[in-house]
Amino acid sequence: MIILVMLSVFQIAGAQKVVTKSGHIWFYSHTPLEEIEAHNRQVVSIIDETTGEISFMLLVKSFEFKRALMQVHFNENYMESDKYPKSTFKGKITNLDKIDFKKDGIYPAEVSGDLTVHNVTKPFAYKGTIEIKGGVVSAKAKFTTTPREFNITIPAVVENKIAKEIQVTVEATYASN
């Protein structure tokens, strides 16, 4: 009996945080000269349903490009991923009162926090959605950013091949921890 009570308490306590280790973040750069797309499917993300804390963590080297040379340039020249191997976001869902993690639905989520890319940390706010379906939490967001914001210099030779604004999409399906 005691074990049963302990188990259920433990489960309730455990249900407050949801985690994924295979979140998907991809970015897209479009110019008339070149289409560039890269996917990272090894993104770690945690949402604390009680406090609204949300975090994302990824290894820059896990971004996969179609062309090998692009991936080399991305890691060596732009992101310097040997020096700065990780990108992170740590923030909070600011409209947590409007999201019911116990009830199925698609909820607009407002998130703000700090985004760290290329060792540069910037305050960052975006709007995404949180979907609850059969108790499973998933999160989606789409935003644009610029290489310049994170001190990434694009050399003049390839300036026309890399978009000024990079579209970033985030998709994560969580499991309770």
Partner: peptide
């Protein structure tokens, strides 16, 4: 091996 987050990747 690309490094470590919460697990080895």
């Amino acid at each position: 091996c690309n490094g470590y987050l919460m697990d080895v990747v």
